[in-house]
């Protein structure tokens, strides 16, 4: 079984699903979204954060010791399923009080189907609600057999509807993604699972009239009434440097303002309503 690297575990999140949640971030992603705000999540291998402003040139790291100043930090740790279970279950009391649970994020958790499968099965045994945030780029059959039975909630990203644009900004075609989405919605939606599509809002990339119209049309066709929007947030922008990488060009430096966000959401809603209206005209 391929043991994934995990680059972060945050607890008591209010933003990543119902109730209070622990969020586990997996390292490695098949896509290369230029706006990615977790650049350390892309490469599946171990990496280092280095913050030169903290370094006191003590030389500790060179002799295999811990960096005391935290100037050098490992990105990516191995956890056995047991270890991860233990960490997740530490907050069981909060899941219970809030109807919360655990959310797998990344990176792309589905890269590690076997690991995830075992983990989620055991979490279900413990009665923990499981949520998955996925880019949708995965082997559907394996997903259906290994993971789907143990997942309660899926956040499914639909980023860019046009294939060329999708390739341009994420490095991969969206064919598999859209196909997986449709198969999930039509073939395998069982009672216990809920799918919420998510659309990132990045100005001039995903937040364009063409793209949002396209997504509205797609959702309408597949009877998706609700989706979530993820306004762009540049919080990870300085991480590129600390990773020793150059950040991709053209990514916005400012967060999407509340007004712009509202503008695009309204635009989407209007378009969706248009499709609904014209459909009922028929």
């Amino acid at each position: 079984m391929r043991r994934p690297l995990i680059f972060d575990i945050t607890k008591a999140s209010f933003d990543d699903g119902p109730g209070i949640r622990t969020v586990v971030f997996f390292k490695g992603c098949p896509l290369r979204c230029v706006w990615c705000h977790n650049p350390e999540s892309i490469d599946p291998d171990h990496e280092l954060f280095f913050d030169s402003s903290l370094c006191i040139h003590c030389g500790n790291h060179a002799v295999g010791k811990t960096c005391f100043t935290l100037a050098r930090r490992d990105v990516g740790n191995v956890y056995t399923v047991d270890e991860l279970m233990e960490i997740i279950l530490q907050d069981k009391i909060y899941y219970k009080s809030s109807s919360g649970g655990v959310t797998f994020s990344g990176g792309e958790p589905t890269l590690y189907m076997d690991y995830m499968s075992e983990l989620c099965r055991r979490l279900k045994d413990e009665g923990v609600h499981t949520a998955l945030q996925t880019c949708g780029y995965f082997d559907y059959k394996r997903f259906r057999d290994l993971l789907l039975p143990y997942i309660d909630l899926i956040y499914f990203d639909i980023k860019i509807i046009d294939e060329t644009e999708h390739i341009r900004f994420t490095g991969k075609s969206n064919k598999i993604i859209l196909e997986n989405f449709q198969r999930l919605m039509y073939e395998d939606l069982h009672e216990g699972v809920c799918v919420i599509p998510r659309v990132p809002l990045v100005e001039r990339i995903t937040a364009t009239e063409d793209n949002l119209s396209g997504i509205a049309s797609f959702f309408h066709t597949h009877h998706i009434r609700e989706c979530e929007f993820l306004p762009y947030n540049p919080s990870g922008i300085d991480k590129w440097e600390r990773l020793g990488k150059t950040r991709p060009e053209g990514i916005p430096e400012k967060a999407l303002s509340f007004q712009t966000q509202k503008k695009w959401v309204d635009f989407y809603k209007n378009r969706y309503a248009d499709f609904a209206a014209s459909a009922s005209d028929l």
């Binding site: 008591a12 109730g19 209070i20 009391i93 909060y94 009080s97 809030s98 109807s99």
Partner: peptide
């Protein structure tokens, strides 16, 4: 929603 979660957080602290 945020009130409910905040409140549940407090419940969790007390329960523990």
């Amino acid at each position: 929603e945020s009130i409910k979660k905040f409140s549940a957080l407090i419940e969790g602290f007390m329960k523990s």
